[in-house]
Design a protein around this nucleic acid. Structure first.
Lengths: 225, 225
DNA sequence: GTTTGTTTCAAACGACCGTTTGAAAACTAA
DNA sequence: TTAGTTTTCAAACGGTCGTTTGAAACAAAC
């Protein structure tokens, strides 16, 4: 055992650079050569510390997902009377909030922004080797929130419940990934940097959507499998 | 001018193969060699017909986005009394519906499924060179729907309106891309192949979210730029 | 048949990819 | 200092990438 800072330093530099590049170019679009150059680290360090590109991606995710999911759980547990909006907020706020931890110096390359874009990106890209990993990371959280949401509405878990949680994840991921798009299209009306407002918007939208009456089941047409 | 079918055939074979591979591996993850092998076409044909990989990607998108956006507009125009749900449906149904054009033979590799996954994938990946292209393709549609939605609620266009349209796009894109995830996590409760049900779910969710009371504006914290 | 223009094809180009290697360097513990 | 371990580094490996090239195959016009 060696209490060395060299290794930890390069590990962190690699993780930070990887987060930035995954946010911008995705997994397939990120090369270890650009990455290590940016991190001022030798190319072989990635394989030495993380075993390869896939291991690096997992480590990047692990470093962020854990704390966020723990905070989600904590917020959920802390709710005394959990109405829909509160549960939705417990679900969407931790990841969105992590986007702007640095209110004093909020620029586009702040760690929070990078982390957020990386998160949104990976959530939708889902390289094959990450599917299992992501599933284990999110399964229990998803279950608990589906439970809490159905209970808050005094309903039974159903396909509608799962669909709606899925929609919320999609809205969040797309927002994290493409915040600048909405700003451009709305010609500045929307300001993605105002995280408070963004969280309020998403919570209001998602809570109302979640509380909506479930669509009546059609006489189903084709049902495969 | 030569009225030849050779050229048109290889063009279409390339486009079909590209659609399938973009759906599965995204832009950066798709190689022209695998692509041309799958299309039974010479490697150089891509550069000959489309000028390169980027030109091919644009052509793949152009072939699908045009019809879908035209149908969105047509449906919007056809609404006599456009309430929120109807407008939302006019927006989300054409792309989702295009996922299952072949009810007689609906398997996972149907053109609709492939197209849909490609669409969802590109919408969130947004390779840099496509950003301008996508913006022009969607700007007018987005404007018209924001108009229609605000009118249906007798409101003024606001940041909230744009945010919510953005959320809907995100929910849709994420669903197109990760339909299998929700099926797995819900342990079969959700069946992404039942497009009718899926459209109803998304419309109910999105319409309710859109009609919700706008969140009251906080005393804003940081407002950058 | 010859000519002209279009489309296909095999081969190669240079560049970049992720990974491996073996030695040098840095550090710890004795 | 010495021995042993951990970490860095330059170099190279085998492959795949997108693109280019020049000749062959093809269709139509003369």
């Amino acid at each position: 055992m060696v209490s060395d800072t060299r290794a930890a330093d390069t590990r962190d530099q690699i993780l930070d650079a990887a987060e930035a590049m995954l946010a911008e170019h995705g997994y397939a679009g990120t090369s270890l050569r650009q990455l290590t150059a940016r991190a001022n680290v030798n190319l072989a360090a990635v394989n030495y510390h993380f075993g390869g590109k896939e291991g690096l991606a997992k480590a990047v995710l692990e470093r962020r997902i854990g704390p966020i999911n723990r905070e989600r759980m904590a917020r959920l547990d802390a709710l005394e009377r959990p109405d829909v909006a509160a549960v939705v907020r417990a679900f969407v706020e931790p990841p969105l909030r992590a986007a702007a931890p640095d209110t004093a110096n909020p620029d586009d390359d702040s760690p929070g922004h990078r982390m957020c874009r990386m998160f949104g990106r990976i959530l939708v890209e889902q390289p094959p080797f990450l599917r299992a990993f992501l599933a284990t990371q999110f399964r229990t959280v998803a279950r608990r929130f589906v439970e809490a949401l159905t209970k808050s509405l005094r309903r039974q878990p159903s396909a509608t419940t799962w669909w709606r949680l899925h929609f919320i994840v999609g809205a969040m991921a797309h927002t994290l990934q493409n915040a600048s798009t909405v700003e451009r299209m709305s010609e500045g009306l929307c300001n993605p940097s105002d995280v408070d407002a963004l969280v309020d918007e998403l919570v209001a939208f998602a809570a109302a959507g979640f509380a909506a009456k479930a669509p009546r089941r059609r006489r189903s047409g084709v049902t495969r499998r």
